[in-house]
Design a binder for these strands. Structure first.
Length: 648
RNA sequence: GCCGGCGUAGCUCAGCGGUAGAGCAACCGCCUCGUAAGCGGUAGGCCGCCGGUUCGAAUCCGGCCGCCGGCUCCA
């Protein structure tokens, strides 16, 4: 057989040759240094046979792809170590069964069915065994088996591997990797010897994980690890993790007194403290202004609705398990509202509508309640009661695309104003064959097409994810990552042909006949709680001036400056700024430190000179002394920055 | 909901079978100071809750509640 090298040279190798055979044929440093290969753009190890005529580039430990190889092998080393760990405890080797063990962003994990729970306390011991396996420098061997033989090997002994083999598509090779008697079904690729793995790894935590991600399957124990090429990279990663934890909105929420979750009130229910509520109100005000500019009208509806309403909308039977149960009294039943749309639809339906009224855009900062599973609750980002910056646009089928694009524009404007640059757009479509959706196929197909067209025409790049649609229609979501790298959905825009149908709402067209409107459900923030949670982490608590709960603190140097500090406070306050004068009996240095820790954007120091000249000494939270300015100038400047919603 | 871990003062944490501790914050007093912590004092605890083991439990065991990390779910 022949393969082609990056320089175009063709090399003749024996049938079934591997990258190792190639490295040996090339000789020289390749023989010693090759650890894998890129074959037709795909990462191969030294053990896997090369396809005829392949383009092959050998890689060494210096290439970035090496990381993938050793992380994958580390997963196997972990599995072997766990097996040894339990053997030391007196269990037979086959008492430890294995699920999958892939490479992930910073390392790897392995799903393990062990005879005893693995706890965090066991990790150092398991790590030590892993290091020993690295020191033993074990060679890895790869081989393939026919499907029948592979199945026979595990039949009746290991249901996980049997299931995994059955999942391998017909025609694909079924390969195994083995080191020192430890064999695992695996597609590869791996490093050729465990001694090549850099010892810069760490097992981080254990978690439960259902086999194949299906809650009907048994739960295995997933051991997570991180691994890098150098000690520095590992150290950096762990340091960054610590830094990220300082941005955690749950921590900052407490430190900056923004919000509270009190078990006595109930889990997943947010108590907004005065400082946090300032931010919340500013965000709402911002959104209200932007929506008014774009032709929205505000409405207000109650927190509950009759069960009949939700039976008509379809919420009740379809999502009963994620709602608080109905409240029944006398012969009526009510539901805490999980969504605002049915109420808005009834506002639409309250009178005969003309095509001339459309698009009708009804907006509400509506608070909804959903019964989220307890294990899923998370600070502000997953709660049981939250306020949506919700609106429903009722329009003609012809208006859908333009309206949809206008909402994309609004959402991008909001993100831009707040400096949120790191997000992705995701279109959620219906999963074929699922019964959790309402409405007919033609409408779904049309809506899915309209969303994609609108997104493309707005120059948005997006991914399409099947099965991510709402039960009544497909949607476009804006997704961001929090400080610790978890993804959260913020803004959402959904096209809905179904609820208008279920509520039988109409408008009178130019032809005098009734027509069915289309609804667009949309919320640029998504949930104000979640959005603010993300925003806290995005700004690390250092909010831009217009959002900062306290915009400026005045620090008098000595007690004799208190009257002037008061005057400065009054001047800023009169301009509508949120300002506090610090008249405590403390040293100026201590006061500055306090306001810095509270992440107040502006500190104004006043002493003899300032009082005399009518100036203030300006200092911002990035520890910069900006100089001395006339009071009136500072007031005007701060006011302009607030009004312009500047990011600084 | 499931698996694992953790609950000690408002916060961060020590103590881990034998009389509940520190720093910060709070409160009181002294100090009046030029850009990140002045000094002294006072108060603050059903050691998450319930039960068990023990002469004796913050400490050991069990259940519950809450939180944390994942998994599943997610309008």
């Amino acid at each position: 057989m022949k393969v082609r090298l990056p320089d175009g040279k063709e090399i003749e190798l024996k049938e079934g040759a591997t990258a190792r055979d190639l490295a040996e044929a090339l000789g020289g440093r390749w023989k010693k240094e090759a650890v894998g290969a890129i074959v037709n753009g795909e990462l191969y190890d030294l053990m896997k046979p090369l396809p005829e005529g392949a383009e092959v580039r050998l890689i060494t430990r210096k290439d970035p792809e090496f990381q993938h190889l050793f992380r994958h092998t580390l997963a196997h080393v972990l599995a072997q170590a766990v097996r040894e760990f339990f053997q030391q405890k007196g269990y037979p080797p086959d008492s430890v069964k294995l699920g999958v063990g892939p490479v992930i962003e910073h390392g790897f994990y392995y799903d393990i069915d062990a005879p005893e729970p693995i706890s965090d306390a066991d990790l150092p011991a398991i790590e030590e065994i892993m290091r020993d396996i690295l020191r033993r420098d074990l060679p890895l061997r790869r081989y393939e088996l026919p499907r029948e033989e592979a199945l026979a090997r595990y039949q009746g002994k290991d249901r996980y591997k049997v299931a995994l083999i059955q999942d391998i598509p017909e025609g694909e090779p079924i390969s195994f990797y083995e080191q020192e008697g430890f064999t695992d079904l695996c597609r590869g690729p791996h490093v050729p010897r465990t001694g090549l793995i850099p010892p810069h790894f760490k097992l981080t935590h254990v978690a439960g994980a259902y086999f194949k991600g299906d809650a009907n399957n048994p739960q295995m124990q997933r051991v997570y690890g991180v691994a890098f090429r150098s000690k520095e990279e590992l150290k950096d990663y762990l340091w960054q993790l610590e830094e990220a934890k300082k941005r955690d909105h749950r921590r900052l929420g407490r430190e900056l007194e923004l919000f509270l979750i009190d078990p006595m009130v109930g889990k997943g229910l947010i108590l907004w403290l005065p400082k946090g509520n300032v931010i919340r109100e500013e965000l709402i005000r911002f959104m209200r202004e932007e929506q008014t500019k774009r032709g929205y009208q505000l409405v207000t509806t109650p927190h509950i609705g009759s069960l009949e309403l939700y039976k008509t909308s379809g919420h009740y039977p379809y999502y009963a398990e994620s709602q608080f149960p109905p409240m029944e009294l006398e012969d009526e039943a009510y539901l805490l509202k999980p969504m605002n749309c049915p109420h808005h639809i009834r506002i639409y339906a309250a009178k005969k509508r003309s095509y001339r009224e459309l698009p009708l855009r009804l907006a509400e900062f509506g608070t909804v309640y959903r019964y989220e599973q307890s294990g899923e609750l998370h600070g502000l980002t997953r709660v049981r009661g939250f306020t949506q910056d919700d609106a429903h646009i009722f329009c003609t089928p012809e208006q859908v695309k333009e309206e949809f694009k206008a909402v994309i524009e609004l959402t991008l404007h909001v993100f831009d104003t707040l400096g949120l640059k790191d997000f992705r757009a995701r279109i959620g479509t219906r999963a074929p064959g699922s019964d959790k959706y309402v409405g007919d196929d033609a409408h779904w197909a049309l809506a899915e097409r309209q969303i994609q067209e609108a997104a493309s025409e707005m120059g948005l790049s997006y991914t399409v994810e099947e099965g991510d649609a709402a039960f009544y229609g497909p949607k476009l979501d804006f997704v961001v990552k929090d400080a610790l790298g978890r993804e959260w959905q913020l803004g959402t825009i959904q096209v809905d042909y179904n609820l208008p149908e279920r509520f039988a709402i109409t408008y009178t067209g130019p032809d005098g006949e009734p027509h069915r409107p289309v609804m667009i459900h949309r919320a640029p923030f998504g949930s104000i709680e979640r959005f603010l949670g993300i925003l806290i982490e995005h700004f690390a608590g250092e909010f831009p001036l217009w959002l900062a709960p306290v915009q400026a603190a005045i620090v008098p140097i000595a007690e004799r400056h208190h009257p002037y500090a008061e005057r400065v406070r009054a001047a800023l306050g009169a301009a509508g700024l949120r300002v506090e004068a610090d008249l405590r009996s403390e040293r100026m240095q201590a006061k500055i430190r306090d306001w810095e820790t509270r992440k107040v954007p502006v500190i104004l120091v006043v002493g003899d000179r300032e009082a005399e000249e009518g100036t203030v000494a300006l200092r911002d939270r990035r520890r910069k002394v900006r100089g001395v300015f006339p009071l009136a100038e500072v007031v005007a400047d701060l006011k302009a920055r607030v009004d312009g919603r500047k990011l600084e």
